[in-house]
Structures are given as structure tokens and as C-alpha cells.
């Protein structure tokens, strides 16, 4: 399987203390995505100019001539790069970083089990990404192993994938953090795909008895409006939906895109206004049933 990180002791990706597996590859292209390094199913090299000290270690180790230091400046030629990652390993300031590692399910499983003692008080493992369902077979195998080891698994998903696959993996998932990005009319423009399949999968999971938390990034100027809240409220009537999280926008994706050499599509540099998010939560609570938690 291809992952780009395992973050240990995360406190923000589901209840309790969790290890988060970041799957590489995503079928969506959300303009505001805070993990653009997850888009591609292949490894990607990032270069943070501000961290580079032009030491030239990368140019010495690289066998393909991707790096050179000219007049004290580092120049990276990505077209020659085979993504071996040797330069990133050598880089003393971590200005170069390789995102993406091919690793067996068994190795990921054994890494995750190292923190089993900390998965008490509701914690466990969270699949995130990228989109875990973009590597369905691996995700399923890992989920099964964790289930059998008594580890709670939560899956964060954009909902875009085969419905049968979702229903199959749901047997081993304690709950889904199911993303709802925006209303149907904006979906394709903002994420690159229509949301019909996503909503179909949400219904299917709910009907199958899955526990679902709707995770909704609030993007200023895109979905911080009543129409979106009403849309969320309508989805919350599904029996599987227990909770809605309004996630405040943060601009980390912008700097990540810069170091990955990707164009910035949503360039808002400001953190979400906390008061604004609280107002939206209040408005949403009026629209939803009392037993739906809004966080």
C-alpha cells in the first residue's frame, strides 16, 4: 500500500488518542485541500526554499542530475526525478521531503499495534488521506486485521468509491468521518467530481447501520452559508448520522502547494473566524434534530 504518513498520538481524528494512517491518492481535487500531497497515488517530492541552506548535499547524492546549486541558489529539475527519495534522506534541513512510501499492510499493522496500549478511553486507528477507499483492498485487509486485534477503526472518507466496497469495509469500521464538502450545484466546480455517488454511498452506509459523523470543512465564501447548513441538516436525518463537525478552514494547504510546485486554487490566507464558526453551529442546531451533536 502507498501511504504518506503515520501520525501517532493524534487527538483530532476521532475520539481518544489515535494513530492515523494517511493513504496516498484521492479522486477529489478540493481547491482548499489541506493535504494536497495526498492527491497523487505516486510519491511526490516537495522543496521548501525557506529551509534550504544550499549545502549541495542533494546534488552530490542525486544520480539523475535533478539538483544543482548555482550562484548559491538551489535549482530542482523535476522532469528528471525518479522519486527515489535519496536527496530527501540526505537533506540536513529537511527542505526536501518525499511524500509517499510503498509499505506492506503487515508492516503498517505492526506499526499501528505499537501504540495499542494508548487506544484506551475510546481511541484507536483512523484511516485518512487522501482517500482510504482509493486503495480499497489494502484498506480492507488492514481494517480486518485491526478489527481482529480488538482495535477500534475509524475511517475518514470523501465518500467517493464503489458502494459495494463501502458496505464491505463498513463491517470492520466503528464509525465513518464522512466528508460533506458543499451542495450539489457547487460540487463539481470545487472538488472535481459530482456528488451523486457520494450521497448514494452515504445513504447506503446509513441503511447498513454504520455510525457516521459528517465532517464538513467550512470554507469562507464557498459553503459558509444557510444553503449549505440546510443541506447538512437534510443529510443529518439519515439514521446513521450521529454528529456533525464543522471544521474551521485553515490555510496550511497554500504553503504545501507552494513547496509541492502546485498552483494555488483557493488562496485565502486567513484562519477561519472562530465566532463565525460558532454562529454557524448555532444556526445548524436550529435546523437539526436535538439528538444530533454539533461540534
Amino acid at each position: 500500500m502507498m501511504i504518506f504518513d503515520i501520525k501517532r498520538a493524534s487527538a483530532s481524528d476521532g475520539p481518544g488518542l489515535r494513530s492515523v494512517v494517511f493513504f496516498k491518492g484521492c479522486p477529489l481535487r478540493c481547491a482548499w485541500c489541506h493535504n494536497p500531497e495526498s492527491y497523487s497515488a505516486s510519491p511526490q517530492l516537495s522543496y521548501a526554499e525557506e529551509k534550504c541552506v544550499s549545502c549541495g548535499k542533494c546534488s552530490q547524492i542525486c544520480e539523475h542530475g535533478c539538483h544543482e546549486i548555482k550562484n548559491g541558489a538551489h535549482i530542482y529539475s523535476s522532469e528528471k526525478c525518479v522519486l527515489c527519495g535519496k536527496c530527501a534522506e540526505e537533506c540536513p534541513t529537511k527542505a526536501l521531503k518525499l511524500y509517499g512510501e510503498e509499505i506492506s499492510v503487515d508492516r503498517v499493522f505492526s506499526k499501528l499495534l505499537r501504540d495499542k496500549a494508548y487506544y484506551v478511553f475510546g481511541g484507536g486507528v483512523t484511516f485518512s488521506g487522501g482517500e482510504p477507499m482509493s486503495q480499497f483492498e489494502e484498506a480492507l485487509e488492514l481494517a480486518k486485521k485491526l478489527y481482529e486485534a480488538g482495535v477500534s477503526v475509524c475511517m475518514e472518507s470523501c465518500g467517493y468509491g464503489n458502494t459495494e466496497d463501502f458496505l464491505e469495509i463498513a463491517k470492520y469500521i466503528d464509525f465513518f468521518l464522512f466528508d460533506v464538502k458543499c451542495v450539489k450545484e457547487l460540487h463539481k466546480r470545487c472538488t472535481g467530481v459530482e456528488n451523486d455517488l457520494i450521497i448514494k454511498n452515504l445513504h447506503a452506509l446509513s441503511d447498513a447501520g454504520a455510525k457516521i459523523i459528517l465532517r464538513c470543512p467550512i470554507i469562507p465564501g464557498v459553503n459558509d452559508n444557510k444553503e449549505h447548513l440546510e443541506y447538512l441538516a437534510s443529510l443529518s436525518k439519515l439514521s446513521g448520522v450521529k454528529e456533525i463537525n464543522l471544521e474551521p478552514y485553515h490555510p496550511i494547504g497554500i504553503s504545501k502547494r507552494k513547496i509541492l510546485g502546485m498552483p494555488v486554487e483557493y488562496g485565502n490566507p486567513e484562519f477561519a473566524d472562530k465566532t463565525e464558526i460558532e454562529n454557524l453551529k448555532k444556526q445548524l442546531s436550529v435546523l437539526t434534530d436535538k439528538d444530533i451533536k454539533i461540534i
Binding site: S10, A11, I252
Partner: peptide
């Protein structure tokens, strides 16, 4: 060193300087 960034936690030193 762990900090909260919006809705998630991350290692402070891994974040870009501006953040």
C-alpha cells in the same frame, strides 16, 4: 511539541514558518 492547527494536532516544528 504538539500544537492544534484548526481542527487537528500537528508537530509545531513540522509546520511552515508562516503558520
Amino acid at each position: 511539541l504538539v500544537v492544534k492547527v484548526g481542527g487537528y494536532s500537528d508537530y509545531f516544528v513540522r509546520l511552515p514558518r508562516d503558520l
